[in-house]
């Protein structure tokens, strides 16, 4: 269990113990994750970083309850996710997880407000309350002037903000973002990272993000480095972190390297 810490530790929201995940793709048996263990405290903004194929997206899928491990345990907010069926996991995700994707993935035939209200269809709220909450979420991300706009009329940055509003509208414990800045220009990428940090600061949300973007280091509390399905520890983690800091234009000595 090793991370490069930038923040202050608190009670773990996510506990991963000895998790492995393998896929069979054609003739190949791919070891996406090998005995990974880590903890993420509640209210932290955490990044999973590593090269392509390192297993960071697989780890994100396990944390968000999209996928289940072949070995080990994933515990989020006290719930052992391994024990849940596919349908139970779907219900659990609807209640506890807000998801943000690289390509925004909004429904093109719905307005910004209806896109944000989408996860609320799975609740017992009436339509008026669903609309009220969607508008509140859009206000939080600074898009309350774009309620009726359809995705095609919004910029990439605005679409990602709508996606973030959709992720927070159910007030989840955990926000999971898969390369949220991957399809954005520098200015919009910074704005989105700032917004995610704001969610952690203002609303105490736990945010877990997969990213290649070195700019993310300025916003997150912890970074977990992965390579070839293994969580890097000790010097390996420090070296990976230093390389990313360097790529971001910061000297490695300037980082607050931790555990």
């Amino acid at each position: 269990m090793s991370s490069v810490s930038i923040g202050v530790p608190s009670t773990p929201l996510i506990a991963i113990r000895g998790v492995s995940r393998r896929y069979v793709r054609g003739p190949d048996d791919i070891h996406a994750l090998e005995r990974v263990s880590l903890s993420i405290p509640a209210g932290h903004f955490v990044a999973f970083m590593g090269p392509s194929g390192s297993g960071k997206s697989t780890l994100l899928n396990l944390v968000s309850g999209i996928d289940r491990p072949d070995e080990g345990h994933v515990v989020v907010a006290g719930q052992v996710l391994n024990e849940l069926s596919e349908d139970e996991l779907a219900r659990w995700r609807a209640r506890h997880v807000g998801l943000i994707f690289q390509f925004f993935n909004l429904i093109p035939v719905l307005s910004a407000r209806d896109n944000v209200a989408l996860p609320l269809l799975l609740t017992h709220l009436d339509k008026r309350e669903r609309v009220r909450r969607a508008e509140t979420a859009l206000r939080v991300v600074g898009l309350d002037h774009r309620l009726e706009h359809y995705p095609r009329t919004l910029s990439g940055g605005e679409q990602q903000r709508v996606a973030i509003a959709r992720a927070i509208v159910t007030d989840p414990d955990l926000i999971v973002a898969d390369e949220p800045t991957g399809d954005l220009d520098a200015r919009n990428a910074e704005a989105i990272l700032a917004l995610l940090r704001q969610l952690r600061h203002d609303f105490g949300k736990t945010v877990v993000m997969v990213t290649h973007d070195p700019r993310a280091l300025r916003f997150v509390d912890d970074v977990f480095h992965l390579d070839k399905g293994v969580l890097l520890e000790g010097d390996d983690a420090e070296r990976a972190h230093a390389a990313i800091m360097l790529a971001a234009g910061h000297p490695p000595a300037g980082t607050g390297t931790g555990r």
């Binding site: 999209i66 596919e86 779907a90 219900r91 609807a94 997880v97 807000g98 989408l118 799975l122």
Partner: peptide, 16 residues
Amino acid sequence: SGELAVLKAIGFGRRV
């Protein structure tokens, strides 16, 4: 299929 995958990911069950 992309949208359906996203709907499933955000919690829409198989029956829905």
